[in-house]
Computed example of a mutant assay.
Amino acid sequence: MKNPTLAGLSLLLTCAAFPGMAQKLYTSEWESGILEKKTKVGVWEYFSYTPSKRQVVVQRYDHTANKLVYYRPISETYYNIEVRPGQWTRRLVDQPPLYIGGDPALANYTTKLNYPSAAQERNIQGRVIISFTLDTLGHATNHKVLRGIGGGCDEEAMRVARTIPDQWIPARVGPRAVPVEYELPLTFRLAAP
């Protein structure tokens, strides 16, 4: 976790460096960057944790230029990509599709699941997988339930997946963006009594 004293010092230095401007350094456990009138500007860093609990930068995104500056490579993952209109093939991509802010930012939306009462009454638990297409501009379309568990969970997972803002960075093969099918798991787990 970031040192609050250092964050306060950074804020003080930022305000001193830009007197009269409504800019301030915002730092949390998951992100750090400059806010100008409550809008992210310049290059922001986004963090995650390794299995050994070490904080690492997973993305640097320039919100002024709307451009990915850096991402921490993840394990090789195959995606269904559209090679020609309507023709899909499974292959590795040079850059995977990324959500701006990384998994912690995406998790912010996936935790908004409302557990359906029918599923609770029937003790239904498990993982629903929603699939959708991310186009070359990072827009999500064609949402569908790839694997469901019933009890209203599938519909709830679909509702949440459709509310995720279009803040995706498209996948790339070489220098060009390519449409991919993205799979989003959403877990329904009952609290232990």
Rank of each mutant, 00 (worst) to 15 (best):
P165S: 14
L68S: 00
E36G: 04
Y78W: 08
P185Q: 10
Y78R: 12
P19K: 09
G126R: 08
Y79D: 09
Q87E: 13
P51H: 14
E156G: 13
Y26K: 12
Y61L: 10
P170G: 05
K40A: 08
E183Q: 15
R54V: 08
W44T: 02
V145C: 10
P96N: 13
E76V: 13
Y71C: 07
V83H: 03
M21P: 11
F188I: 09
N142D: 03
H139T: 14
L190P: 00
L35F: 15
K112P: 11
D62E: 10
Y79A: 05
A105F: 04
A157C: 06
V56L: 12
I169D: 01
A65E: 10
T110K: 02
R54A: 06
V43C: 02
L184F: 05
T77Q: 09
L9E: 10
P4Q: 01
G138M: 14
G126M: 07
I149S: 00
P170N: 06
H139L: 09
P73E: 02
R72N: 08
I129K: 02
K53R: 09
G151P: 04
P116D: 04
A192P: 02
V57H: 12
G126C: 04
P193Y: 01
S10C: 11
P97V: 05
Y109W: 15
P170W: 09
T110R: 02
T163F: 01
A105Y: 03
L113W: 15
V173I: 08
A65I: 03
T110Q: 04
T163Y: 07
E29W: 12
I130F: 10
K37Q: 11
L92P: 10
L146A: 08
P19W: 12
T136D: 04
E45H: 02
L13C: 04
M158S: 08
A16N: 13
L134H: 12
T89Q: 03
T39S: 04
Y109D: 07
C153I: 05
A107H: 12
S117M: 03
S10N: 11
P85A: 11
